[in-house]
Amino acid sequence: MLNYTNAITEEKSYSSLQMKEIKPVMKLVIRGKKREFLSAIGKSLNLLLPTEANTSSRSDKLTALWLSPDEWMIYSNEILNSESNEYETENLLNKNISKTNLGAVTDVTDQFVLINMKGDKIFDLFETGSPFNFNDFRNKKGSVTQTILAKIDVIIHNQNQNEVNLFVRRSFSQHLFSWMNDSASRL
């Protein structure tokens, strides 16, 4: 049995902001250009991939983020078991997408750390280190952006009023989380 060691072990709470890592959450990057690719995904997952830039879509089990015209990230809405890293969704897509040469499916579960943020100071924190204009984004549930925060690439998904999911590459996550806490401590 292997032990599971995730990147961010602390949960941080401030007067109007809470931050923690959510894990294990399956994450896949799926890529494809063909029309059949989109329909095969739709059929396999019962989920329509968002084709409008900077948006997302959601089913009971999965959320899909638009990353580029031929690239999406799919992540599981629920927390999985860390004792296995076999994912049903991945196997299904490997069968229906990769094996049929419709596109590419890549497991990035541990490539990204998912930091969940709640509270009404989220965007004040982002403004201390991101050049992205959050004025419209913050009012639009489901919006997605890939941008820079504290010089680090991040994907930000507006989950709900005052709740976002932030994805950062694992190797950067501890540095970013520390930076975010430093910033949050003065908001």
Partner: peptide, 27 residues
């Protein structure tokens, strides 16, 4: 390893008999 998938490559940057185990980061 147990229920955890991994990839093992037998490649060498030292000239010695060697293996690289690639496993999901959290393991």
């Amino acid at each position: 390893i147990g229920k955890i998938k991994c990839r093992v490559m037998r490649i060498s940057f030292t000239g010695e008999h060697s293996y690289e185990i690639n496993v999901q980061a959290n393991y």
